[in-house]
Amino acid sequence: MAQEFVLEATVRDRVGKGAARALRRENKIPAVIYGDKQPPLPIALPYKEVFQKLHAGGFLTHVWTIKVDGKSIRVLPRDYQLEPVRDFLSHVDFLRVGKSSRVAVEVPVHFENEETSPGLKRGGVLNIVRHTVELECPADSIPEAITIDLAGYDLGDSIHISAVTLPGNVVPTITDRDFTIATIATPAGLESEMAEEGEEAEEAEEKGEEE
């Protein structure tokens, strides 16, 4: 399960574009904590630490503990904004979470044992339909990733969510269908080659029957 981050923050006395620019000059980033039927809490966080966590991966699937004025608040990042030109992190939204909170989170999909997949060994292509899957899970039990074992999958096979073993307290948010996560696709060239081989086999079989 996901590791928890701990950061120190200060309460923002002012909000707005001017105040945000002033914070960035101090190497801080404006953020807000909301939810749990409490008023929004505007805060400022150290820019470098938040930026590093953003690029470390799993930014939106890790529970954070933010310490503000001696009080620890457990939160989950729900959104962030980047400046379009400089790719500069400009704001983060956090959702308060408790020990019994359940959240919907986009979890990345990872694949393993590609080298032992019969379909990929024969020249097939892994066609990833969903790079992430939205799961409903306890805030304290967010999976780092969904891992799919490709061993045994052949050309033309589809991998559905039903093939994934999830923890007992974790469910996909899409429940009305067994949606596809990936397929083992047959390239056009290989498909033509397989069709020709099939025709040759049929011709050989028909010739054998005539004899």
Score class of each variant (00 low, 15 high):
57 G>N: 07
35 G>C: 07
153 Y>T: 02
143 P>A: 03
14 R>E: 15
133 V>S: 00
128 I>F: 08
167 P>I: 01
186 T>A: 02
121 K>Q: 15
32 V>T: 07
130 R>W: 04
49 E>R: 09
208 G>P: 00
12 R>D: 14
98 G>P: 02
59 F>I: 02
68 V>A: 12
120 L>F: 11
78 R>Q: 12
56 A>P: 02
194 M>C: 00
68 V>H: 10
122 R>T: 03
140 D>V: 05
87 D>M: 13
158 S>G: 14
78 R>I: 07
72 S>K: 14
87 D>G: 14
169 N>V: 08
23 L>C: 10
199 E>Y: 10
141 S>P: 00
101 S>H: 02
118 P>R: 02
34 Y>E: 09
184 I>Y: 03
23 L>M: 13
142 I>V: 12
93 D>I: 04
177 R>L: 07
178 D>S: 11
151 A>E: 15
12 R>E: 14
66 I>N: 01
20 A>R: 03
121 K>M: 15
139 A>I: 02
46 P>R: 11
157 D>F: 08
159 I>T: 06
115 E>D: 15
113 N>E: 15
156 G>L: 09
130 R>A: 14
7 L>P: 04
178 D>M: 10
126 L>Y: 05
134 E>R: 11
167 P>Q: 01
107 V>S: 00
31 A>E: 03
11 V>H: 12
58 G>D: 03
170 V>P: 00
190 L>G: 02
83 E>S: 11
76 L>Q: 01
48 K>N: 10
50 V>T: 08
9 A>M: 06
14 R>K: 14
191 E>G: 00
71 K>Y: 13
104 A>K: 09
169 N>D: 15
34 Y>P: 02
159 I>E: 05
179 F>Y: 12
205 E>I: 04
53 K>G: 03
90 S>Y: 01
47 Y>P: 07
128 I>D: 12
91 H>E: 10
159 I>S: 06
78 R>S: 09
192 S>R: 11
85 V>P: 00
159 I>Q: 05
31 A>T: 04
99 K>R: 12
37 K>G: 05
171 V>Y: 05
50 V>F: 10
79 D>P: 01
201 A>Y: 07
196 E>K: 11
32 V>N: 07
200 E>N: 12
153 Y>H: 12
190 L>I: 14
44 A>N: 04
40 P>T: 10
29 I>F: 04
131 H>P: 01
79 D>N: 11
180 T>Y: 02
163 A>P: 03
104 A>V: 05
173 T>V: 14
55 H>T: 08
200 E>I: 10
71 K>E: 15
79 D>W: 04
198 G>I: 02
60 L>V: 06
61 T>M: 09
204 A>S: 08
107 V>E: 00
41 L>V: 08
57 G>I: 05
47 Y>M: 09
85 V>T: 15
116 T>E: 14
192 S>T: 05
183 T>M: 11
94 F>M: 09
126 L>C: 06
44 A>Q: 13
9 A>H: 08
13 D>I: 06
94 F>Y: 09
147 T>H: 06
156 G>C: 13
85 V>M: 13
73 I>L: 14
130 R>S: 13
195 A>W: 07
33 I>C: 03
179 F>Q: 05
